[in-house]
Design a protein around this nucleic acid. Structure first.
Lengths: 202, 202
DNA sequence: GAAATGGCGTAATGAGCATTGCACGTGAAG
DNA sequence: CTTCACGTGCAATGCTCATTACGCCATTTC
């Protein structure tokens, strides 16, 4: 029975998370009621409380299930070439593509809203996602340094600079809802070139 | 009577805004009740509704009264020197100093929380503050261009890049509550140098 | 000093929703 | 077929505020 049990509950769990994710994206966390989640997912309020403790727990489950680190993008970019310029151009474009879809932005907004008012959530989220992206990227710069490439600054500064540019775009877009201007793909490339030149990698 | 009236109400208005600002900074917007505001400012609920329509109106008043554009910082930096490198180093440090105090960060968090869930507020706020900072900075790059300085990219791209680095720091800090690493003053200078080199201004 | 204007204080009002408790029905196991 | 467990559905239960209504007091004007 235990096996079946698990299967049944897991299906419910998945359905609830999917519905919650959908509603959070569409209406935001605060404006989503657990009633709506139940309505869309089936099941019952009691089940949500059994599975997730409370509404906050549901949010955590949704967010930590959806949010991936961008380590994978870095690996893909590294696999495609060994030239720093090519790798970083590729990475810049991939980051942009994966973070600037409306769905991801809506989820980012939910995370931001929560982070801003809940220090603990903010820290946990950062550790789970941005932190490992940071580390991977810094490893990459350190690797290049060991290979004998000269760079104009420390791997730490380069990492922070690159990320502040590219993740900053996401934050800005999420916060301003498109009131701030965006870079076109060509301008994005120009900015990456600016970084490369500044870093001494071009 | 009209004059006196005005003076009395204005004092109340100032006290209410100061108290609200204080409480928003300390506890955030959602967690601040109008009751607390009245308790701290004196006056009465009815007065708040007369002056600000509702809680949202009070938030707008607080935020738009507190938030200044950074145009002034740009003007100060420009007044101090005519060398782009010096100006931008100065500006970078000034921006950091004015945006990384705990009080300003707390206010930024309030604005972010609101912006994320209220498109209209986000747009209005952007127009009132960031937009004019953007414009001033872009004017500066265009000015240098007209002076015959060669730069590696368009004024638009340079502006976006510079701002995404420096305002991005503020966003990141506000959102992560210090979980993300910060640049030391020397590292900040290194990053500015990176920008200058990348921009062809060094 | 009397009248009027308008702020003050308090006490409803009421909505919105998370959270809980309980009685029912449906699935699996013997 | 029966039984038991466990999800389900529904219907309270609170609670927290924003928002409103109203009678009182102070200050100003004539």
């Amino acid at each position: 029975m235990a096996e079946y049990e698990c299967g049944r509950l897991d299906k419910r769990r998945d359905a609830i998370i999917a519905a919650a994710r959908d509603l959070f994206i569409k209406n935001g966390y605060e404006r989503t009621t657990l009633g709506q989640v139940v309505e869309q997912a089936g099941g019952s309020l009691a089940t949500i409380y059994k599975l997730f403790e409370n509404k906050d727990g549901l949010l955590s489950a949704v967010v930590f299930e959806s949010a991936a680190s961008s380590e994978l993008l870095i690996q893909k970019a590294v696999a495609g070439s060994s030239d720093p310029a090519t790798i970083l151009h590729r990475l810049a474009r991939d980051l942009r593509d994966s973070f600037l879809s409306n769905e991801v932005l809506a989820l980012v907004r939910v995370v931001i809203a929560r982070s801003v008012s809940d220090v603990d959530f903010a820290r946990r989220f950062y550790e789970k996602t941005a932190s490992s992206t940071r580390t991977s990227l810094q490893d990459l710069f350190e690797h290049w340094q060991r290979e004998g490439r000269t760079m104009s600054s420390t791997p730490f500064v380069l990492t922070e600079t690159f990320l502040s540019m590219f993740l900053g775009d996401t934050h800005k877009e999420a916060i301003t809802h498109g009131a701030a201007p965006q870079l076109s793909p060509e301008e994005l490339d120009a900015r990456t070139d600016l970084f490369l030149r500044g870093a001494g990698l071009l």
